Computed example of a mutant assay.
Amino acid sequence: MTTLTEDTGTAAARETPARRRPRVDRLPYLLLLPCLVVVGVLLLWPLGQVVAMSFYKLDSVRQLRGDREWPWVGLANYTQILADPFFRTVLRNTVLFAAANVALTMILGTLVGLLLNRLGRKMATFVASCVMLAWATPALTGTIVWKWIFDDTSGLVTWLFNKLPDGLSQALFGQSDWTGYGWFNSPLLFFAILTLVVVWHSFPFIAVSVLAGLKSVPSELHEAARVDGAGPWKVFWKITFPLLRPVFGILVVLSTIWDFKVFTQQFVLAGGTQDRPTFMLSIYSYAEAFSPPPKYGVGSAIAVILTLILLVVTGLYVRMVLRQEDE
C-alpha cells in the first residue's frame, strides 16, 4: 500500500506542472491595439494601395476615383521604368546624393556632439539649443529661407559676391557682376546647395544623439587613455567609436532613409518638377504620377522601388547588428 501511495503521489506530482499552463497577460496587447490600428490605417493601408496601383494603368482622375475600371498591366510599369535610361540616371543621382549627405551629416554631427561633450553645462545647453533650432525648423520654412539666401538679385550670397573687389572676383570666378546669376541652373551647383540645406537641417539630430551616447561612456576610460599618452583621434577610434557603434549604426540607417526620401527641399529649390537633370527618386515618382499627362501607376511603381531599396538597407543593418550580438 505504501508503494502504491508513493507511486500515485509521484505520478500526480509529475502531471501537475504539465497541467499548469502559464497565464498569458493580455493587457499589454490590448494597450498596443490602438497604436497598431493607427499604424495600420495611416501607414499599412496607404502602402498597400500604392503597391496595388503599381500593377494597373492609371492615367486619369476618374480611374483613380473608381468611376472607371482599373486596367491590369501586371509588371509592365516596373518593366517600363527599369528599361528607361533616365531611371538609371535618377537612381545614380539618388545614391550619390544620399552617400554624400550621410557622410557629411555624420561627420559634422559627430564633431558637434564631441564639442558639446567638452563644453560646460551652461554653454553646452546654450549651443545645443541653438543647434536644435535648425532641426526644429520645418523643412519647407528652412528651404524657403535658403532659397532667398541664394536669390539671383536680392540674395545674401549674391550681395556678398558683389562686394568682392572686381579684380579679385574676375580672377577667381571669371566675372565681377553677380546680379542675375542663376545659382540653381547648374546641376552640380544645385546639388551642392541642396546638400548644404539638407546637412544644415539634419546634423543637429546626429549631434544630440552622439552627445547622449557620449554621456553613457565611462569617463575613466578616456582618462586612462590620456594618461597612457593617447591623443584625441586615437581615443575616439579605440574607445569612443567601438562603444558607440550601435548608436552610429542606427544614425547611419536613419540618415540614409531620410536622404533617399528628400523631396521638400528639392521641390522648393527647383521651383517644381521641370528640372529633370536633378531628379531623384522621390521627386521622380511625384512628377510621373502628377505631371500632365498623369501616370499614377508608373509613379506608384517608382515609390515601391524606393521603398524596397530602403527595406534592403534596413535589413542589412539589422543583420549586421545581429551578427555583432552573436560575436
Rank of each mutant, 00 (worst) to 15 (best):
A212N: 11
L115F: 12
S129C: 10
L164K: 00
V199F: 11
A134K: 03
L188H: 11
L188W: 13
L133G: 07
C130D: 04
P138Y: 11
I149N: 05
L140T: 06
T195G: 15
M123V: 15
M132H: 06
R118L: 10
M123N: 06
V145K: 00
G109E: 02
G174V: 05
L156S: 06
W159H: 12
L156I: 06
L108N: 02
A128D: 07
G109D: 02
A98N: 06
S202Q: 14
G167I: 08
M106E: 06
C130F: 12
L168E: 01
V112M: 01
M123F: 12
R118F: 06
T195P: 01
V198M: 11
S154A: 11
V131D: 03
S169Y: 01
G167P: 00
G174S: 10
V210Y: 07
Q175C: 03
V210T: 11
F150Y: 14
A128N: 09
L211W: 13
F205G: 13
N101A: 12
A139H: 07
L156N: 06
A134Y: 13
T125D: 06
W146C: 02
V157T: 06
L133D: 05
A139V: 03
F184C: 08
P138N: 10
T153H: 06
W183T: 01
G120F: 08
S176W: 08
F126Q: 04
L211V: 13
K122Y: 10
L116K: 01
T105E: 15
A103G: 10
F184N: 07
V199E: 15
Q175R: 15
S169M: 06
A103P: 02
V198A: 15
L133K: 03
F173K: 05
D152V: 00
I149M: 15
G182T: 05
V127T: 07
M132C: 05
T153Q: 13
M106N: 05
L188R: 13
L133V: 14
L189E: 10
V112G: 01
G120H: 08
L104I: 14
L104Q: 09
V145P: 01
L111P: 00
Y181H: 13
V197H: 11
K147I: 00
W178E: 01
V112R: 00
F190V: 03
G182R: 11
K163N: 00
T143F: 05
M132G: 05
